[in-house]
Design a protein around this nucleic acid. Sequence first.
DNA 1: CTATCTGCAAACGTTTTGCATCTGT
DNA 2: ACAGATGCAAAACGTTTGCAGATAG
Lengths: 143, 143
Amino acid sequence: MIKETKRYRQLGIKLTPQRLAILKYLDGNKSHPAAEDIYNAVSKEFTTMSFAAVYNTLELLRDRGTVKELKIEHGRKRYDFDTKPHHHLICIKCKKLVDIHKKFKLTVPEDMTEGFEIRGNHIEFYGLCPECKKMYDSNHIVF
Amino acid sequence: MIKETKRYRQLGIKLTPQRLAILKYLDGNKSHPAAEDIYNAVSKEFTTMSFAAVYNTLELLRDRGTVKELKIEHGRKRYDFDTKPHHHLICIKCKKLVDIHKKFKLTVPEDMTEGFEIRGNHIEFYGLCPECKKMYDSNHIVF
DNA sequence: CTATCTGCAAACGTTTTGCATCTGT
DNA sequence: ACAGATGCAAAACGTTTGCAGATAG
């Protein structure tokens, strides 16, 4: 507990109890939660908690690169506490999401870049998860 | 005009004047407009036009694969009338967007897919466009 | 003729903002 | 002590929905 707090302190943000609860929830979390998920989870053990605090903290963490905002869903931001660069594999039916930790060296022909200096890439693989694939095979559901 | 209308008719949707205007605006458009952009553009020459018609039409076109919804911006959907599979190169500073028409064969090791059947991929390249690169070089702006 | 589209406006879900109060450092 | 965080509630934003009237096929 003390060691965690010390690590969080290195983020250089003011550590309120609300922020500690948020950080503890996000730490090691692979579920790519939305702000609402974080609010729900944290306010269980912390009755006094507001969306303002959640958004405030997420914005701070995003600005210092500690969390990444994912654009995998329309209408709501999803957050990723995994700072290592990685890609995503998403089920086109149920939207289940898997991290792909593999680096792909992709080169774009110069005549396609319109003078851009390419700094990186993010790949969204899409397909069918085992459960949805089973439904597809047995029921011939068309996606 | 008549030839275009005939082509649009093949979409199999009821062709109202509003829809014809929307289709004409989207046809060959590479700017990945949002619904609001479409509404603004079309209502210039068409004073009676509602968001309902725009969204209605976009939903219809999306469902028959004629347009794709892009998740490149938070909060608002962007639409792509280019049906050929392609990738995107986005300036991290000004958000300028360039289409990359190149196929990348990417294989994900089986032990990473968690049983997913991968059907395709979409790559978001990010970097600096010529203008923003120039600013960066001369002013040492840090992104 | 009638299924479906239109325009308007209200409803929605998420994010942002304003402000008075409170609190880490 | 005070910069800045909190909670609350209202506003903002893009999207969706309900409905009465209009219209393409």
